[in-house]
Simulated scan of single mutants.
Amino acid sequence: MTHSIPLTLDINGSPHTLSVEPRVTLLDALREQLQLTGTKKGCDQGQCGACTVLVDGRRVLSCLTLAVQAEGCEITTIEGIAGENGDLHPVQAAFLEHDAFQCGYCTPGQILSAVACIREGHAGSDAEIREYMSGNLCRCGAYNTIVEAVRQAAEASR
């Protein structure tokens, strides 16, 4: 018999207190307990990247991360990257400008991965962008426009 444990997660700059079983993933805590449904559940096996969030600024597959592992860390979801005044993050704006999505299911994970890719300094060329974004799959095949959007956002951040 598993018991729930109290947990406080810092998500998008705000503390959230919840009670979870130790085996609950960060993805399920975000979606099911906190109703932050922008983070998508794709394969639930760490292969597609749809569940990518930032933990202390690093890309993390939230389907493979236990919620308890993220306690004390700064978690950023797609809901938390726009400006406080509602202005889109430069990566979000570039994705819109380049139509870097089709169905949109992978887009939140793609955008958060792109934010980290640029921050890590891995957006110097299209080949480098493709390499460092390779953990995020797009079933619609919007890769060319995703690369264009990441390149534009990276150039704007320099």
Rank of each mutant, 00 (worst) to 15 (best):
H3D: 10
I5M: 09
I5D: 00
L7K: 13
L7M: 08
L7C: 11
L9E: 03
I11S: 06
N12V: 07
N12S: 06
G13L: 11
G13R: 08
P15E: 07
H16M: 02
T17N: 06
S19H: 09
V20T: 05
V20L: 05
E21K: 06
E21M: 04
V24D: 10
L26Q: 13
L30C: 10
R31H: 07
R31A: 06
R31K: 06
Q35N: 14
K40A: 08
K41C: 05
G42S: 09
G42Q: 13
C43L: 13
Q45Y: 08
G46P: 13
G46N: 09
Q47L: 10
G49V: 06
T52E: 10
T52K: 09
V53G: 11
V55E: 04
D56Y: 07
R59N: 04
R59S: 14
V60I: 12
C63H: 11
C63T: 05
L64E: 07
L66F: 15
A67Q: 00
V68K: 12
Q69E: 05
Q69Y: 01
E74W: 00
I75A: 01
I75V: 08
T76R: 04
I78R: 00
I78F: 01
E79Y: 02
G80I: 06
I81Y: 01
I81L: 02
A82N: 05
G83H: 14
G83P: 08
G83V: 04
G83A: 15
N85A: 14
N85I: 03
N85H: 10
N85S: 14
G86Q: 03
G86F: 01
D87Q: 14
L88Q: 08
H89R: 05
P90V: 02
V91W: 04
V91I: 07
V91R: 06
Q92S: 01
L96F: 12
L96N: 13
H98R: 12
D99N: 15
D99S: 14
A100L: 06
A100F: 12
Q102T: 09
C103K: 02
C103P: 11
G104Q: 02
C106W: 04
P108A: 08
P108T: 04
Q110L: 12
S113A: 15
S113I: 00
V115R: 04
V115K: 01
A116C: 08
C117R: 07
I118D: 09
E120G: 00
G121S: 07
H122D: 04
H122P: 01
A123N: 12
A123C: 11
G124W: 03
G124R: 00
D126H: 02
A127D: 15
A127I: 00
E128Y: 11
I129R: 01
I129H: 03
R130H: 03
R130A: 12
E131L: 05
M133A: 11
M133K: 09
G135M: 12
N136M: 05
L137Q: 04
C138Y: 11
C138W: 11
R139S: 11
C140E: 11
G141C: 03
A142S: 15
N144L: 14
N144H: 04
I146L: 10
I146G: 14
E148N: 13
V150E: 13
R151Y: 07
E155Q: 15
E155D: 12
E155N: 12
S157H: 10
S157Y: 10
S157K: 09
R158T: 12
